[in-house]
């Protein structure tokens, strides 16, 4: 089932073979690439650190859970399952955290329940917005990200509303 088990080794084989055919010094060029990669990681490290600190505080303090409780009356209006709210709140901030919450939902409600399906739709159709935003811009000298965050959050909000809607439409 896992397609990527074949994809990655195949890519490596194709790239090195194509390189040799085109008379590229694949060894030297690969080393240059690795050098650039090492530079990139040192550039994004500070942003990563700051984000991990802030996410850690939000998660460990219980603020994420509290925020989910506050939202419950509003989200009940669109029929959003309240079991899934903590996931919706955490998803934009933390990849590993939201996966842990997702597993909790699957375990508590049964993997084929409505709540689990909505949670699956959210996990499958969203990314950790703040992480992506912070890390991608940290690779550049950009300080003013302008409307990037508001637009990305509009997308996240759409995931929650559409996730419920489409799970109901396709699975009843």
């Amino acid at each position: 089932m896992n397609f990527s088990n074949y994809v990655i080794p195949a890519i490596i084989a194709i790239v090195f073979t194509a390189g040799l055919i085109k008379k590229v010094d694949v060894f030297a060029v690969f080393l240059d690439g690795v050098k650039d990669g090492a530079k990139t990681i040192t550039e994004i490290f500070p942003a990563l650190f700051c984000l991990m600190l802030a996410v850690g505080v939000v998660k460990s303090s219980g603020a994420a859970a509290m925020f989910a409780d506050l939202l419950a009356p509003i989200t009940n209006l669109i029929g959003f399952p309240k079991e899934v709210l903590p996931l919706a709140v955490l998803r934009p901030f933390s990849g590993s955290g939201s996966i842990a919450v997702y597993e909790g939902i699957l375990k508590d409600n049964g993997a084929d329940s409505f709540a689990s399906r909505v949670a699956s739709a959210i996990i499958g159709s969203s990314e950790t917005t703040f992480y992506t935003l912070a890390v991608y811009f940290a690779a550049t000298k950009v300080k003013k990200t302008r409307y990037a965050l508001p637009a990305a959050l509009c997308g996240d909000f759409a995931v929650f509303v559409l996730g419920v809607l489409f799970v109901r439409m396709t699975l009843g």
Binding site: E103, L106, A111, S125, V159, L162, T170
Partner: peptide, 29 residues
Amino acid sequence: ATMAALRLKHGSVTPLDVLPAVWLTSIGA
């Protein structure tokens, strides 16, 4: 893949039944 694997692990009979919903939600969002 992560989502499907976790659903399977927690006893889902049809872990990929949400795929149409995932695609529609992704495109919409």
